[in-house]
Amino acid sequence: MTQLAYHRPVSAAEAARLAAGDPEAKLLAGGQSIVPSLKLGLLAPSALIDLAGIPELRGIRLQGRTLTVGAMTTHAAVAASPEVRSSIPALARLAEGIGDRQVRNRGTAGGSLANSDPAADYPAAALALGAVLRTTRRPIPADAFFKGLFETALEPGELLTAMEFPVPDRAAYVKLPQPASRFALVGVFLAQTGGAVRVAVTGAAPCVFRVREMEEALARRFAPESLAGIGLAADGLSSDIHGSAAYRAHLIPVLARQAVAQALG
């Protein structure tokens, strides 16, 4: 591998300072996406800033109706957490369905969100639950966080520190996994809180997105039948060897109906 500088800060502030001082540096969370990219030569940063030695970035806390997950909390920890399982079981199941055992032991919730892979699971949860993403500088609502393909609102030198998930009345996540990677070919996360429903789709486009027509229909009546007749155009959706845009467009309402049924079950 290339020889690059390797930093291991002990606080989020120090990590943010290091990142701000070197625009070519990369923040390293669990490394489950970065390390393969380094090996393939898709990334050639000047330095890695390893966040593993920063205890303040880890942990899960449930206070009232807000579940806070530290950015460096692993998928395995989210999946096993009694706080997550009791407050937002759909989020625990989502974490349990990521990759495989080894990936879940290393990969982190914050790493997934900051990477904004178009087929990652966490962005759908953050967007559908209306999470607030806390950084070293500011709180960012999920609606303003995801900007495009591997692109977020995070600025150079800004470090994601924790996610605050409002606890919904009901939620569910259903994905059709790409069988080799377990990434979402398409995944639909929906959440109902009071009279409001949010529906977020991952895997189908360059960036996670909401489906307002489904949200409005489900807000009127939260039942699978409410989605009858709501179709999505294939225009702008992703097309690759795993599935055409038309196939992905077809999957979205199918998975959304399953998710409503699961949320009601």
């Binding site: 489950q32 390390v35 032991n105 290393r106």
Partner: peptide, 16 residues
Amino acid sequence: GRAAKSCNVLLGQVSG
């Protein structure tokens, strides 16, 4: 004590 793929982890990440 937790399984990981050692081809996908850097030595620096396992310090300590």
